[in-house]
Design a protein around this nucleic acid. Structure first.
Lengths: 230, 230
DNA sequence: CGAACAATTGATCCTCATCAAACCTTGTGG
DNA sequence: CCACAAGGTTTGATGAGGATCAATTGTTCG
């Protein structure tokens, strides 16, 4: 199912784009559909495309040579990914992008975008804003990982996800659809520790848990864990 | 001592700038000198200026509310800092910049740079390239911190510094001027652990150590520690 | 020389990672 | 509709890797 060019404007990077620009992007892009668990690209692949997720959900992750993974961020509809590798020519992707569910993305040739940037200052400006946001977030997470204890890091990860992907249920709770493993990769710990912490939280009525699911009952309590001194 | 506008071209961001642009920057900037240990700006200050270090050495660091610090990067002559906070209006600096020795910097009003970017596409493009580089490095360090053991992290930190700030001595060794505390903040550990690891390395003739000083005797040995499987 | 600061080293303790086993949940096919 | 497989989750036991604390020993500089 082809992408409606005008919907592309939901993408931060293209907020200010003209209709013609959007059409140009879609014309020069190809749509890629990917099953749950499959990859849009792998760390180390030549960075030939920049992607915009048009449906589904994906995650960006990095692997070390021993195979351990960390989650860099989760990608929602109309978010860009793979842009980092495309700034310099002949770059390779510094991370892998894996679909969390069946997903589609518009893949635009890196050069196309590169060329467009030369004549459309808004593009590099927007991309820069995006990069600074990510950089700032990474710096914060880096500090957290270096200085904070696990429970707090998990609380932060959950709260971050709440803002980005939380869906409200009828009775006012907020639902997150992630495995313990996912949460572990996002907070730099193991699924065992996440499980233990969630159980502890459940005892104190902060959350309800289930398979691939966390319901947040008391966000304020989590904020307290995430922010409180000591 | 006023900054020679043309020397500004050493700054990555201004490689492609015209002479007039450089002069404009200097005219609109003020020079700030700062003693060792003092701050150019503090985390949380309103981000009114973008800085270019014209002499000395500084570090960018983040502090959590308990006062623990992490080192985000070290700043050398002609490198930009404080640019991150200046992209959005009314932003605050996400980190503090502290002089490692007596240093000077050219401070340019954020708005000035912002305005210049609108008419000079190369500026936002260069700034974007810079941001992607930093982002990529932070992502890597984040993964390291999450998945690698301390010794390896310290080895990586030392090697990174070697590339950025290492000065060669006559007899072919590479010298780094950092305290154990600095290295600890850069690798997410404590000065005690750094001290122990360096002592161990010294026993194996990989380095020589001294007060605020590490001499690298065998870089290849360090690479091995940093890269080797297991 | 003495003060201030940096580094070392030992002893101790605590947080988490790791491993193992059992238990749930969900979806599939007979 | 049940049985079973596959994958997700829980929980306990154990131990390692570093953090923390304390005391001592350099080093530098006024």
């Amino acid at each position: 199912m082809p992408v409606d060019p005008l919907r592309l404007r939901q993408t931060d990077m293209f907020h200010q784009a003209t209709d013609d620009d959007l059409r140009l992007l879609v014309q020069n892009g190809i749509e890629r559909s990917v099953e749950e668990g499959e990859f849009f690209f792998l760390q180390g692949d030549p960075a030939r495309h920049v992607y915009i997720l048009t449906s589904g959900r994906a995650k960006l992750m990095q692997t070390n040579r021993a195979g351990q993974q960390v989650n860099l961020r989760t990608i929602n509809e109309w978010q860009t990914f793979g842009a980092l590798g495309s700034v310099r020519e002949n770059a390779t992707y510094p991370a892998s992008a894996q679909a969390l569910e069946q997903s589609s993305a518009l893949a635009i040739k890196s050069e196309t975008l590169h060329d467009m940037m030369e004549t459309r200052p808004y593009l590099s400006f927007e991309l820069m804003k995006l990069m600074t946001t990510y950089l700032q977030e990474m710096q914060e997470r880096y500090r957290e990982l270096a200085t904070e204890k696990v429970e707090r890091r998990i609380a932060r990860a959950v709260l971050r996800l709440t803002g980005q992907m939380g869906t409200k249920t009828k009775d006012g709770k907020i639902e997150l659809a992630f495995t313990r493993q996912d949460l572990a990769e996002m907070s730099g710990t193991t699924l065992y520790t996440v499980s233990r912490v969630l159980s502890e939280w459940e005892k104190h009525d902060l959350v309800e848990t289930g398979r691939e699911r966390v319901l947040i009952r008391n966000p304020h309590g989590l904020v307290q864990i995430a922010e409180e001194l000591e």
